[in-house]
Amino acid sequence: MSVDASISCQEVVELLSAYLDGELDPTTLERVEAHLAGCDGCTMVLEEFRETIRLSGGLTVEHVDETQRRTLLEAFRDWRAGS
């Protein structure tokens, strides 16, 4: 499945986050895009990375412990009263 001799699948998969975040330099970007255009395997992994990021965005927001919330609110009130 060798496509673009200038960059291998093994190298491309290490660059996918930087690629998705727009952090590749122009030369590397061009090589990665040329590779992806001809490589179904790397394109699949790229799409799965995108999906992984999208699905991660659906994780529920965690909550702050109620005692800690109360302590912080009291500290905020004290600060305001003292300032």
């Binding site: 499945m1 060798s2 496509v3 291998s8 699948c9 093994q10 190298e11 395997g41 790397c42 699949m44 992994v45 799409e47 799965e48 999906e51």
Partner: peptide, 15 residues
């Protein structure tokens, strides 16, 4: 190998 650095086993396609 002739396929150095290329996929030898593709990951499972879950798209």
């Amino acid at each position: 190998e002739p396929n150095a650095g290329g996929w030898s086993t593709l990951p499972f396609d879950w798209r």
